[in-house]
């Protein structure tokens, strides 16, 4: 109780608050100086748009769709040179996006339109 009645106790608290705010100001200024530098913080901010839903969907559905697409869009299935070329391009994109369900869905739409095929 004696400590709480002592004026120096309150003065020390005020001093602590002043020092803490000064430190915060110094830290903020430092950050501004290094604002343009690419660092860990920039890396974190630039990747705010992580699509967790997409990753989870891909984990379970991408494989089935990939297997279907890679079979249906195989260039050897097409005799016509133009369609064979389209199928070849699509196949390479399908392989690139093997684990990306959203991208595979887009490629499926393209395949249906351009190759004139049915995919369930």
């Amino acid at each position: 109780m004696d400590v709480l009645n002592n004026i120096w106790f309150y003065i020390s608290i005020v001093e602590f608050v002043v020092i803490a705010s000064l430190l915060i100001v110094i830290l903020k200024n430092k950050k501004r100086k290094h604002g343009k530098k690419i660092n860990k913080k920039d890396l974190l901010n630039s990747s705010e748009d992580v699509d967790f839903g997409g990753v989870i969907q891909s984990s379970f559905h991408a494989k089935g769709l990939y297997d279907t697409l890679i079979r249906k869009c195989h260039p050897d299935r097409y005799i016509d040179e133009k369609r064979r070329q389209i199928a070849s391009e699509l196949s390479s994109q399908i392989v690139e996006n093997k684990h990306n369900y959203k991208k595979l869905c887009e490629l499926k739409e393209i395949a249906v339109v351009k190759l004139n095929i049915k995919i369930d």
Partner: peptide
């Protein structure tokens, strides 16, 4: 393996 590689193939997630 497929679940793991799906996570690893997401560039933004793995960078983070």
């Amino acid at each position: 393996q497929f679940i793991g590689l799906t996570i690893l193939s997401d560039e933004s997630l793995i960078r983070r």
